[in-house]
């Protein structure tokens, strides 16, 4: 099981970094690729959009330190490169559009099953999903379960790659409501979305990625 670390320890760097923004500076996959700089304030939602292949997912993965590249990312004095990668990823958690599952049932993936059940209820999902085999649930259910799995670890920042791409409109709104709640509680959100209406509903800032770089939409 995985647990949130440091957040509850007085004077831990993770606790001292609370309410500090996530700053990404000159992140790039390397020579020949554009570099991106971006700031996500704690308790805010930043949306990313742009054509396919422009590097939205790559940027999220670079921030989470899942791919090699150049540049840096930090939260106050917590610098990505100077702290263990697994601790960084618990603070800044990336959730893929179609995230993977490594065992069965679903509950075996949840660090805090009680918290997971509460979030499932908030999303209007059945508690029985906790006993399901991940491969046997729908892609939309898996997508929301992936979000729940990440949320119960209480990351400071969530990097969500098209978190509602497999959902119907009603489920999409439920996810957005949940995201708004965690945002108000101080979690920073960086979301890739192709839906302008969704961006308008949830994002405080909106950036558009192109092959040449990052530009703020409606600054």
């Amino acid at each position: 099981m995985l647990h949130a670390v440091g957040r509850d320890v007085p004077n831990s760097p993770e606790r001292l970094a609370a309410a500090q923004p996530l700053v990404a500076e000159n992140l790039s996959r390397g020579s020949g690729h554009p570099a991106f700089s971006l700031t996500v304030a704690a308790g805010s939602c930043v949306a990313l959009s742009g054509p396919s292949g422009s590097g939205k997912s790559a940027l999220l993965r670079l921030i989470a330190d899942l791919d090699p590249g150049t540049g840096t990312a930090r939260i106050a004095e917590l610098v990505r490169e100077t702290m263990p990668a697994n601790r960084w990823r618990r603070l800044v958690t990336y959730v893929a559009a179609d995230s993977g599952w490594w065992t069965s049932p679903v509950s075996a993936h949840m660090a805090d099953p009680e918290a997971a059940r509460r979030l499932l209820a908030e999303l209007g999902m059945s508690e029985s999903l906790m006993k399901a085999v991940p491969d046997n649930v729908s892609s939309g259910e898996r997508q929301r379960l992936s979000l729940v799995r990440a949320l119960i670890q209480r990351p400071r920042f969530l990097l969500l790659d098209e978190p509602t791409s497999a959902l119907d409109p009603e489920s999409t709104l439920q996810v957005e409501e949940l995201l708004m709640r965690v945002k108000q509680e101080g979690t920073g959100l960086l979301i890739v979305s192709h839906d302008p209406a969704q961006v308008a509903r949830i994002a405080d800032r909106h950036y558009v990625l192109s092959r040449t770089g990052l530009a703020e939409a409606n600054p």
Partner: peptide, 9 residues
Amino acid sequence: AIEARLSLG
């Protein structure tokens, strides 16, 4: 699945 686990810490 491996990357999901890495992403979660």
